[in-house]
Simulated scan of single mutants.
Amino acid sequence: MTIDLDRAVLLPIDMQLAFDTPPWPRRWNEKVDPNGLALLDFWRAAGRTIIHVRHDSVQPGSSLAPGSPGNAFRPGFEPLAGEQLVTKSVNSAFIGTDLDIRLKRLNAKHVVTFGISTDMCVSTTVRTGANMGWDMILVPDACDCFDLPDGQGGIVSAEDVQRAHVATLGFEFARIMTTAELTNLRAAA
């Protein structure tokens, strides 16, 4: 299936400062910010729709709670004038928000996702969106995730978490594309 870029909405998910400090574990992808910014630049240059997603935690003491420094967007990821923002308090950007209706009103066809973290909010949003009938496109090189405890006293590396989640999402729920593949596409004439 091809991509109609004029009906593709870019959905950056949880590109927030909290993930750079404890209690969050080690992340692996040093290119998450440059690749994410390249996608934003590509969409903005063409005047295409971007809907930013921010996690506004309702958990007491969360580094993602509104008003906490970690709730802020990472440098360069702040919505610009005219760009939309969806706030969520759960893992999926579709649950408890009006994202689905916004996409319908835009006559969107494709939802291009990236962000932090691949295995949590990005994955849950991709899975929900696919189940709702959206053509979900995941950009793994603009995603990041964390080292996680394996429940047996060990750690699953962030790289292994990423590889497994990209594989499952690509097998069932989304098309997988790189930042370069997307930014080299041209709109249909």
Rank of each mutant, 00 (worst) to 15 (best):
T118Q: 05
L138K: 04
A158N: 04
G76T: 11
R175I: 00
L169N: 07
R102Q: 15
R186L: 05
A164C: 06
P60F: 14
C143A: 08
Q152N: 10
I155Y: 01
A72S: 06
N71T: 02
R186G: 03
P60T: 12
D150A: 11
S57V: 05
R163G: 01
A142T: 14
Q84I: 04
G61A: 09
A108C: 07
V126R: 10
A167K: 11
L85S: 09
N184C: 07
T128P: 00
F114Q: 04
G76I: 10
F173D: 09
L99M: 07
V111L: 14
A142K: 12
P69T: 01
G133H: 11
E159N: 03
R102C: 05
P69M: 00
E83M: 10
G154H: 09
G70W: 02
V90Y: 06
G70E: 03
T118G: 03
F94T: 10
A174I: 00
R74H: 08
D144R: 00
R127N: 05
T118W: 08
T128R: 10
G76P: 01
T183L: 09
D144K: 00
A142L: 12
A72W: 01
C121Y: 03
T87E: 15
S89L: 01
H165N: 15
P149A: 01
D98F: 03
G82C: 10
K109N: 06
Q152Y: 02
F146N: 11
H55G: 04
R74D: 06
G67W: 08
N107H: 12
D144T: 03
P69K: 00
T183Q: 09
G151C: 11
Q152S: 11
P75A: 11
S123Y: 02
R127V: 14
T178N: 09
G133T: 03
V161E: 10
P79R: 11
E181C: 09
H110K: 01
T97E: 03
T178E: 11
H110D: 14
L148N: 04
V86I: 15
G82Y: 11
N91M: 13
E83T: 02
I137N: 14
V139C: 06
